[in-house]
């Protein structure tokens, strides 16, 4: 079974800076890391490989330094890493990104199962995984919290939905996006770290993945950001509730909430 894991380089939480003119994130190498959800996607793939056999390939789209996160994946012992890289991809929104990644998967690393983190912590859209499934015409299960089993070209997974969980069986090939609760990602192994010292990703551009140039980069992105702003902080009054004991303090809080009609 060929498993492809889509991963993304994101700004490390503590290093986020915005461009005041374009209102986009300033992305540089020093403050970048792998999207945390993608570590869980990689772990899911590696566990499937351990239980059912197969090959795991990590794919990312980004500037040359995005190869850093492919090295992380190699450290975790994926079999291969592919970097989709070229100026023609710049400015892509989630539609263009999912088209580009799906084209690369189709051309370079055909997959029985594609695994993504359920959301990236920078854009916070959760659209690329579903987008890939649509471009490739594959089934999609989002917010997966457990892999139950894989057999007869089918995968059975548990996904979290509002108010409960659902068991879903889908025919492969399929795309799943995973939640953090699905597993604890492994650290990079010693052999993986040895391997990544010499690792160079297979790098592909638009020509190599034979994609429609009108669907990639800025040209293929219908999204335009109207405005990005930091919301004003609302100031609130505060009052310290005093009382002899917890019961009395709780009663005072309850009285206040009722009187203010905050609860009825």
């Amino acid at each position: 079974m060929n498993i492809v894991v889509c991963i993304k380089q994101v700004p490390a939480n503590t290093h986020v800076k915005m461009d005041p003119v374009t209102h986009t994130l300033i992305r540089d190498r020093s403050g970048s890391t792998i999207n945390p959800y993608d570590l869980h996607a990689l772990e899911t793939a590696l566990q499937i490989r351990e239980n059912y056999g197969g090959r795991v390939t990590a794919v990312t789209m980004g500037p040359p330094h995005a190869s850093d996160i492919l090295k992380t994946a190699v450290g975790m012992t994926v079999d291969d890493g592919i970097l989709i890289c070229g100026r023609e991809f710049a400015g892509a929104d989630t539609l263009a990104t999912s088209y580009t990644i799906s084209s690369a998967i189709k051309k370079v690393c055909p997959a029985d199962l594609i695994i993504c983190g359920k959301i990236a912590i920078d854009g916070d859209t959760a659209q690329v995984g579903p987008g890939i499934s649509q471009w490739l015409g594959m089934s999609l299960v989002c917010n997966v919290i457990k892999i139950e089993k894989i057999e007869d070209k089918k995968i059975i997974v548990k996904r979290a939905v509002e108010g409960g969980n659902e068991l879903v069986s889908v025919t492969l090939p399929a795309v799943i996006t995973v939640d953090k609760s699905i597993n604890v990602p492994r650290i990079e192994s010693i052999k993986g770290r040895f391997k990544k010292c010499d690792f160079e990703p297979k790098t592909v551009n638009a020509e190599a993945i034979e994609c429609d140039l009108t669907k990639i980069g800025l040209n293929g992105s219908p999204t335009s950001v109207f405005k990005v702003f930091i919301p004003e902080r609302q100031k609130a009054d505060h009052e310290l509730i005093e009382g002899k004991n917890v019961a009395e303090k709780a009663q005072k809080v309850a009285d206040f909430l009722f009187e203010s009609k905050l609860i009825v």
Partner: peptide
């Protein structure tokens, strides 16, 4: 997990 990280066969 130690095995997974190759710490058992150094």
């Amino acid at each position: 997990k130690m095995g997974q990280a190759d710490l058992c066969g150094i």
